[in-house]
Design a protein around this nucleic acid. Structure first.
Lengths: 150, 150
DNA sequence: TATTGTTATACTCTATAACTATA
DNA sequence: TATAGTTATAGAGTATAACAATA
């Protein structure tokens, strides 16, 4: 009796599919937010700021999983765009808290709209229940992988 | 009547979930294949070779969506590992066809096993029917995004 | 002259390490 | 002396452009 060896090879694995799909979608997203002079990492920073408040840039670096020096350059750029402000903590003048400006909220909303548009294109061939199931499943995987679920 | 504005913000979009999950999974996969001295791009090349026959390295570059010069360095490394061979086309001596060696097949199988192990860890909390549905849905998205479906 | 593979070069992204100011 | 933020430097990864062999 033969084994069905490799019936679904590497391209059939979740790891491969998530990796390739994720990279492709990120690239397309990057193209669309280019006109706002933003890159995905900037949007990640805006998103983090939109969700919670961080005592310091280092907290933020930890949350995003990037080096503190990267937060500096991301924040520099966002400050140039008027999307964030740095405010010194009066009780410990070494610390700076980043806050979203109105412009920052606008940009975040614009990027969210782009993401939703991409979502719609990608799932146009699916029924509503399938779309829902996909959302649920990916949310569950994200939680399992230790990523922010929402 | 208030709109439920931003009830599911950017982190709830497929683009965001696929992007972050894909990056995380790729990183973990990269860690695991490091001991074979391979990186994801090498595995991508091996996979392409394992699936079809390509006339030239440039065809391959097109298929993988990378620059021809990158195929050269990937192939160099794989040749060092004994995973691929370059054979000149006798009818057009400019062309070289890359072929998988036995060692190449072994390495591809080992990487596939790593990917399956990661899959299992990631979906350990799901039932079989949910796992199946996820596979189907992602395959469908991949096809829609113009990626190799299998 | 056009094309394949290769090599040389440059650019982007990000991390590590050195530095400044506050504590 | 230790810590937050910044700046300087270095490395990985990949693309573009110049080049050599073959057509």
């Amino acid at each position: 009796m033969n084994e069905v060896k490799g019936s679904a090879g590497l391209p059939g694995t979740l790891v491969f599919r998530l990796g390739t799909l994720g990279a492709t979608m990120s690239d397309r997203f990057a193209e669309r937010i280019e006109r706002h002079r933003l890159k995905p990492k900037h949007v990640g920073l805006l998103t983090a700021l939109g969700q919670g408040s961080f005592a310091s840039q280092q907290d933020l670096a930890g949350q995003l999983g990037v080096a503190p020096s990267l937060v500096v350059s991301l924040a520099d750029h966002l400050e140039t765009l008027g999307a964030v402000r740095r405010v010194r903590d009066p009780r410990d003048r070494r610390r700076q808290a980043l806050t979203l400006t109105d412009r920052g909220h606008e940009l975040l909303a614009a990027c969210t709209a782009e993401a939703r548009a991409l979502d719609a294109e990608l799932t146009a061939h699916l029924g509503e229940s399938e779309r829902q199931a996909l959302h649920t499943a990916l949310g569950s995987l994200a939680a399992r992988a230790g990523l922010p679920t929402d």
